[in-house]
Amino acid sequence: MKSRRKRYVRFRLHMDGPPVSDKQLASAVRMSLLSIYGEVEVADSRFFLNEYDESGGLGILQCNAASLDNLMTSAVLLSSIDGTRVSFEPKRTSGTIRALKKRAT
């Protein structure tokens, strides 16, 4: 069986309004991916929010390598989450979470 390669992305969610929780963010990203690329892409993406700091908006997400571009496009096109206006900024991508954290320090 072909192994699924993962990608980890460090990001910042710029917010204008009340803080957005991890559940709200994950749901909004999935809904945007569903709206633009469809149900199969949501299923294949294996999107998961690894870390997320509500106050600062910094976080790390993981997804299937093949779905990375579509997932990022969907997140970037988010303009508001439950009344909070947002701007999603992908900062760095890596194949392992360890490398991502190492580069952050």
Binding site: M15, D16, D69, M72, V76, L77, R85, S87, E89
Partner: peptide, 18 residues
């Protein structure tokens, strides 16, 4: 038309893919 609707250069690149 507002600072929060600005997107980072990398974010714009992803929209380019779309």
């Amino acid at each position: 038309d507002s600072p929060i609707t600005m997107r980072s250069p990398r974010a714009l690149c992803y929209v380019g893919l779309l």
